[in-house]
């Protein structure tokens, strides 16, 4: 029964997310509304973390397998990208490395800055 209850809560939040997506005219998918909603429910203790944790962790562990189907679909949509496949690959490789590096380095620098500020305040 514990798992059924967990699945029901997760399904309810997913459904509410889809409903919000239908009602709000923005290109934001139901899953993102659902993520924010679940976070709010946990923060307000309306849903306790133990009430979703074991199913939630299990789902997150399984996440990579959920991408296998759509990735294999690349063999079916070949026609749509074959004309500019080389630029696409170069752009993907370069921008992904760059995005990862910039995000990581900027946040790492800012963390050190925030920590220093914190220390400074503690010292005063």
């Amino acid at each position: 029964m514990k798992h059924l209850r967990e699945i029901t809560i997760i399904a309810a939040v997913s459904f509410a997310g889809e409903l919000l997506h239908r009602l709000i005219p923005l290109p934001i998918p139901g899953s993102i509304y659902g993520l924010v909603l679940m976070l709010l429910l946990l923060m307000t203790h309306i849903v306790k973390v133990e009430q979703v944790k074991s199913t939630g962790d299990w789902l997150i562990t399984l996440m990579p397998i959920m991408f296998v189907g759509p990735t294999v679909g690349l063999i079916d949509s070949y026609e749509s990208y074959k004309d500019f496949i080389l630029p696409i690959l170069v752009i993907i490789v370069v921008t992904t490395v760059l995005t990862m590096a910039v995000t990581g380095l900027v946040s790492q620098r800012l963390i050190k800055f925030e920590e220093k500020k914190e220390e400074h305040r503690d010292a005063e």
């Binding site: 997760i10 399904a11 939040v13 997913s14 997310g17 889809e18 998918p29 139901g30 899953s31 993102i32 659902g34 993520l35 924010v36 909603l37 679940m38 976070l39 946990l42 973390v49 979703v52 944790k53 199913t55 939630g56 962790d57 789902l59 997150i60 399984l62 996440m63 959920m66």
Partner: peptide
């Protein structure tokens, strides 16, 4: 979608 929702945990 349910898994993305669970990333809130």
């Amino acid at each position: 979608t349910p898994t993305t929702v669970c990333l809130a945990i």
